[in-house]
Amino acid sequence: MLRLTDVSKRYGSGAWVLDRVDMEIPPGQSVGILGSNGSGKSTLLRILAGISRPTRGRISGMPRLIGYVPDRFPAADAMNPIAYLVHIGRIRGLGGDEARRRGLLLLERLRLAGGIRTPIRALSKGNAQKVALAQALMTPPELLILDEPWSGLDAGAHQVLGEIIAETVRAGGSVVFTDHRESVTGAHATMAYRVDQGRVLRHQPGTRAPMAHVMLTDPGAEFRSPSRIDWHEVDGVAGVGGDGGQIQLRVHPAACDDLLMIALRGGWSVAEVRRDHAATPARDGERWSR
C-alpha cells in the first residue's frame, strides 16, 4: 500500500508547501483530495507520482505502473495524438500494433474531436486533456493520478472519466484525484483528504466537517433579475438546492465570504447565512458529501 509518512516539501528555502503529511492510498480505493487553489494539491500529487521528491519524510509501497494526468497538457509539438500514444505505449512495453489499437480505442471512447491526425498543438484544451488522459491509460495503471481532471472536459467525457475511475478501482488499482468542488469529489471518491495550508487531513466518511448554509433569493421585480451562476463551479460549494427563485447552498466555511461576494455581485439577495457549530454525523446511507 502506498504510504506517505511525515512527508514535508518545500522548494529551495521557500515556505513549506506540504507540512508533515501522513497519508495512505489503499488498493481498490478512489481517493479525492480537496483544497482551494494553491493549497498544495498538485505538489502532493507530484510526490505520489514520484515526480517530486519530498524534502523530509518517507514514501513506501510505490506501485510500478502509474498513470499521471497533470492539470494541463502543454502542446507545442507537431506530433499527432495517435503517434504520441503509440510512443507512450511502446515506452510502457507494448508492441507497436497493440499500442495503436489501444490508443485508437481510448481516443474513440473519450470522443476526441479534431481528428487523430491533427497535431496536438492544434487541438482545443479539452481535446488535449483527453490525449493526456489516454496516455495515462495505455496500460491499466495500478495507481491513476488525476490533477483536476474534470476541468476542460465536456459532459460526455465527464461520464467516461467517471467510468474509468470506477473500472480502475474495480480492477484493484487506486485512483487519486483532486478537485476544488466537494460535489464532484463526493460523487467519485470512496475516501477523501483535505489539503489546507500544507496540512493534509483525512475527511472521515460518516461525519461532516462544520459547514455554512447560505440561502439566496431573487430580490424581486423592481430590481434587475440576478445572473445565472453555476454554483457547482464556485470554490468550496458542497451542495446546491432550491429552484430558480430561491437557492440553498452548502459551502465550506472558509469559502463562505467569497461566495457571498459572488452572489451579491450577481444581483442575488442573501436571505440567510447559518453555520454548523460542530461536526454533525451524516444521515444514514449518505456519503460524506453530496
Binding site: R46, A49, G50, I51, R64, I66, G67, Y68, P70, R72, F73, P74, A76, I88, I91, R92, A132, Q135, A136
Partner: peptide, 16 residues
Amino acid sequence: EDPVRRSIQSVTAGGA
C-alpha cells in the same frame, strides 16, 4: 519538451 510533458514522460518511463 515542456516541463509538464517531461514529468509525464518521467512517470511513463519509470523515473526522471
